[in-house]
Amino acid sequence: MTEYKLVVVGAGGVGKSALTIQLIQNHFVDEYDPTIEDSYRKQVVIDGETCLLDILDTAGQEEYSAMRDQYMRTGEGFLCVFAINNTKSFEDIHHYREQIKRVKDSEDVPMVLVGNKCDLPSRTVDTKQAQDLARSYGIPFIETSAKTRQGVDDAFYTLVREIRKHKEKMSKDGKKKKKKSKTKCVIM
């Protein structure tokens, strides 16, 4: 069974824990209790493949930012979460993405942009803004509501699919490099 290491990042209060708990335990946590770091595991079937999701729910508070490099190193894919009623959390996505790329030393890291709290009427981040940002990053965008469960499975499952595509691409690139290195030079 394939294991996928997913990391949920975003500013404090955007609903990272609520999304994760909704996926794992099928219930909505409405009281806000700032996370330092929590880890969850769940076995699911995605596109006919049974897999184990190892999900790291991270601290959004700035005082825990020193811990970010460590979990970013171990993560295979990242859910970059903002709240649709919090423009600052949307603007912060850029910083999370840049930090992930720096730590992973790669421009090509599996990510999904997630606009959470889409059940709320007080939207300050337009869907088109988020779609445009995701398009500019070359990553999928999904709106979710941890409260109603809308888009929750889709967000995590899409990230797994992005990781699969990335692994497939990397193995193809690896095979191309191996083929090239088999060419021999004969000096007579």
Rank of each mutant, 00 (worst) to 15 (best):
E31C: 13
Y40P: 00
I46M: 14
F156A: 06
K182F: 06
I93T: 08
E98F: 03
L23C: 14
K16Y: 02
A83V: 03
Q70A: 15
L6T: 15
A155S: 11
E63T: 07
R41A: 04
I93N: 05
G12L: 05
R68T: 03
T74R: 08
A130Y: 14
K16F: 01
I46L: 11
E76I: 11
M170S: 15
S65R: 08
S39A: 15
K165N: 07
D108G: 06
K176G: 14
Y157N: 08
M111I: 09
L159D: 01
D69T: 12
M67F: 04
A59G: 06
I24R: 01
N26H: 11
K176I: 02
Q43Y: 06
L53K: 10
E31D: 12
E76L: 06
E63R: 08
K175C: 15
A146I: 01
L52N: 12
V7T: 07
T183Q: 14
F78R: 01
G12I: 12
R41Q: 05
V103F: 15
K16S: 11
A18P: 00
I139N: 04
K104C: 15
P34W: 01
T87R: 07
I187S: 14
L56W: 01
K167N: 06
S106L: 12
I139Y: 12
N86A: 07
L53N: 15
L120Q: 13
S136Y: 09
E107G: 08
D132P: 13
V152R: 12
G77S: 07
K104S: 14
I142T: 09
V8L: 05
K104H: 15
E3C: 09
Q22K: 08
Q131P: 09
V160M: 12
K101V: 13
L159M: 12
E37R: 00
T124P: 08
T124S: 10
G60A: 01
D119G: 11
S39E: 04
G15Y: 04
I142N: 07
Q43M: 14
P121V: 10
K172F: 03
K177G: 10
E107S: 07
G12P: 07
L120F: 05
R123M: 11
K117G: 11
V14D: 12
K117I: 15
T183W: 01
R68Q: 10
Q22F: 05
K128T: 07
N26E: 13
M67Q: 03
S136N: 05
K180T: 03
K42N: 08
A130V: 09
T127H: 05
K42P: 01
R149A: 10
L23V: 10
T20H: 00
V109P: 05
N26Y: 05
S39G: 14
F28G: 00
S122A: 10
C118H: 11
Q129T: 12
L6Y: 06
I187K: 14
E143D: 10
E63Q: 08
N116L: 14
L133D: 10
F78L: 04
K184M: 02
K167A: 07
Y40T: 00
K167E: 06
I24G: 02
E162G: 07
T35C: 00
S17M: 02
I84C: 13
Q99H: 08
A66Q: 04
E107A: 09
I100W: 04
T20L: 03
T58V: 03
S17P: 01
K117T: 14
D153E: 09
K101F: 04
Y64C: 02
V81N: 03
K180M: 06
V8T: 15
I139T: 12
F78V: 03
V103H: 04
F82D: 04
F78Q: 03
E37G: 02
D38R: 00
T35F: 00
D173M: 02
L19K: 13
V125K: 09
E63S: 05
A134E: 15
E107T: 15
R123T: 11
T127S: 07
L6W: 05
V81R: 01
Q129A: 09
K128A: 05
V14E: 13
I139K: 03
I55Y: 01
G138R: 15
D108T: 03
V160R: 14
K167W: 11
D47S: 10
H166T: 10
S181Q: 15
A11T: 14
G10Y: 01
S122P: 08
G15R: 01
M170K: 05
V81L: 11
M188Q: 14
F156K: 03
S181G: 15
D119M: 14
T2K: 13
I163T: 04
L120M: 10
G12D: 13
K101Y: 13
F78Y: 08
T35W: 00
V8P: 01
V125W: 09
E3P: 15
S122H: 09
I46Y: 11
D153R: 06
R123Y: 09
T127Q: 06
K117D: 12
D173T: 05
M170I: 03
L133R: 08
T74V: 11
Y157P: 08
C185F: 05
V44H: 09
S181R: 05
G12C: 12
T124M: 10
V14Y: 15
L53V: 15
D154H: 06
T58K: 00
L6E: 03
I36T: 00
I187R: 08
I100M: 15
E63G: 04
S106P: 04
G13Y: 09
